[in-house]
Amino acid sequence: MQLLAPTRAEEAIAALLDGPEGRVAVLAGGTDLLLDLDEGKSSPEVLLSLHRLPWRELTWEAERLEIGATLPLAQLEQDPELARRIPGLHEAVGAIGGVALRHQATLGGNLVRASPVSDLIPILLALECEVGLLGSGGERSLPLEQFLLGPRRTALQRGELVRRVWVPALPSAFRWQRVRPANDVSQISVAVAFAPKEERWRIATAGVAPLARRAKAAEAILRGPSPGEEAIAAAGASAAEEAEVRQDRRATDAYRRHLLRTLVLRAIRAVATGVGGQPA
């Protein structure tokens, strides 16, 4: 296996296009891909490491945050503005792995791997972030919902790399439940965001099949910045009902459904408290 570590974007794209089709693996933080290499699930001819590319931006714009694809999550977590401006993203990033893992793992890597148990995908879906994809013809952007095609499947085309993510700054919250607090997969995680201009609530859940998804029926139940306890309860019940939950060694399907309802309630209340005062 050959390891390439280009310092310029054009070289990285060229390496993708010149390499044998389907035999070039892109390495960012490596916290997921290296396990696949160990287990023989992936045996590329070329390993294209992005660690020398200057893709570690962390730039606040008027209403959103631009995050370079290879910025380690720990540096995102430590941004002094993040907890105030995008609380749900701050909570989600702080819940990933442990401190050492967060110094390696990247946002771009997390999205490209499109794991059904990703804790970042639900919060980024709820915030309706955009993904910037760089190819030989330039950069295009896609809403995350269109970027994710299924478990381990994305809209990335041959010769393209995730370059950056734009995350709207919105009132938001992230709640999760695990057997072990760190370096473990959540049984269920839930993200909620509120877009004040459109007065729209957005709810996304992970730990459901086949990949994290929006709970749109539940979202439609909520109106205004302070939806009230009755609507919140109905949204929680709806989210639990519409989800296709998995059953595995981490949790039964019944427990996952219970968690879904509870965590959706808590996340909505957290956002409503921050946005429109204490829910009735």
Partner: peptide, 15 residues
Amino acid sequence: GRPRLSCLTLSHQVG
């Protein structure tokens, strides 16, 4: 100066 997992780091990535 930052904690990292050496089992998930390629030696060539350290620079």
